[in-house]
Design a binder for these strands. Structure first.
Lengths: 216, 216
DNA sequence: GAGTGTGAATGTATTCACAGCA
DNA sequence: TGCTGTGAATACATTCACACTC
């Protein structure tokens, strides 16, 4: 049976598997253990992840590289191009616009929004910039389903609300603030300061654990 | 008893609690329910998170704002300044160097490394750039404990290895590739392409779920 | 009475272990 | 024999519910 409900954490790893498969040129087949080694996980986990979505392997042999690549692309929805809207064309926003990796993976930032009048109406890295009040109109017109928020903290919730009413279905938020969205919108946090804070915590905590171990 | 082992997921939320406490100017006391509302979680979870680390509240009243702020800062190790090293001073790296939010939260990128000869020896946004072969020497000299990796995929593992042998204890990796580090080094992924891929997956998947529901 | 601190119950993800097929 | 697919067992995280304190 394939009907086990798939944890989203599996999706995170699927895209890592996919990247490795894409790099494989010669081999026609790969085992779960082998694939696991490149991602830093276990064969069991690879098999489990894949088995949530179907039966792609050949017992006793492994997985056909090209076939598996195709299947994972389908599962993740990567056999197409995604258009994306960006609010906040500052330093970080511009860097994202110029990042080739997105385009290579089929993610195209097509339109930018910012309140700074000196860039409105211009193109930044080839992408036209509009005032945020145009968000609903432009996004509906272009049927854009993904948004990126790279504005200062105090404008973040507002930007997200605009995306939501425009029908955006998934949002990546870089602003260092807790924001909310309706449950039918996928909201992902890319809060870099938060990441550094967790790093700080784990350094501190590791030191504490070691001390405790030494004492006891 | 305070001795419940604390999940790391609690640490992620602690930093969100802290941000809200910092913004509070007038109130001297706050209840778990109230704090929860701003983060988009439940009072029970706030209390649980805090109770992993100690007893900070007053039964029947709530938590003293300033005291709780101080305690969380201590737990996360944010009552100090962290020096950080950055490998890869390209578009994204430069944007990170120029990002004020880090400095405001006590994270200081002090030194950059890149292979591009036209920026080696110069300062980018006030931060000196060196060749990566200098990583071990410079990092040990300056006792830097955190690193950020913003290089192209094929140079990522190499950069991480250099950080590891230099004694860096926590690394934030932006490269879109699966990398590994010894278990005593905290490795965090800020793989933006991966985030977009997960967004793609959840849009596709949501559509599927809806169809299924409609049918059944 | 209002609100914390925390066991117990539930839900979710990971790991184990092995039957069964090529 | 080698490797997949997958139940069962374990570990981990969240939510519930309430005794207890100020």
């Amino acid at each position: 049976m394939t009907g086990n409900k798939s944890p989203e954490s599996a999706a995170i790893r699927l895209s890592l598997y996919l990247r490795h498969l894409r790099k494989m040129k010669k081999e026609r087949v790969i085992s779960s253990e082998e694939l696991a080694r490149f991602i830093g996980t276990s064969g069991a986990r690879v098999r489990k992840d894949l088995c949530y979505f179907g039966q792609f392997g050949t017992t006793g042999k492994g997985y056909l590289v090209r076939e598996l690549q195709e299947e994972i692309s389908k599962i993740l929805g990567l056999n197409r191009v995604w258009d994306i809207a960006l609010v906040g064309v500052g330093k970080l926003g511009s860097a994202l616009l110029g990042y080739d990796g997105f385009r290579k993976s089929g993610f195209n930032i097509r339109i930018g929004f910012d309140v700074k009048s000196n860039i409105i109406g211009k193109k930044i890295v080839g992408v036209p910039v509009y005032h945020p009040y145009q968000i609903p109109k432009m996004i509906r017109e272009r049927k854009i389903r993904m948004g990126i928020v790279a504005v200062p903290a105090k404008a973040a919730q507002e930007s997200i609300d605009l995306f939501v009413i425009s029908g955006v279905e998934a949002i990546l938020n870089f602003s260092p603030i807790a924001v909310v969205a309706p449950s039918y919108v996928k909201l992902m946090q890319a809060d870099l300061t938060n990441q550094l804070e967790i790093m700080s915590y784990s350094i501190i905590n590791k030191a504490k654990k070691e001390t405790q171990t030494r004492i006891s």
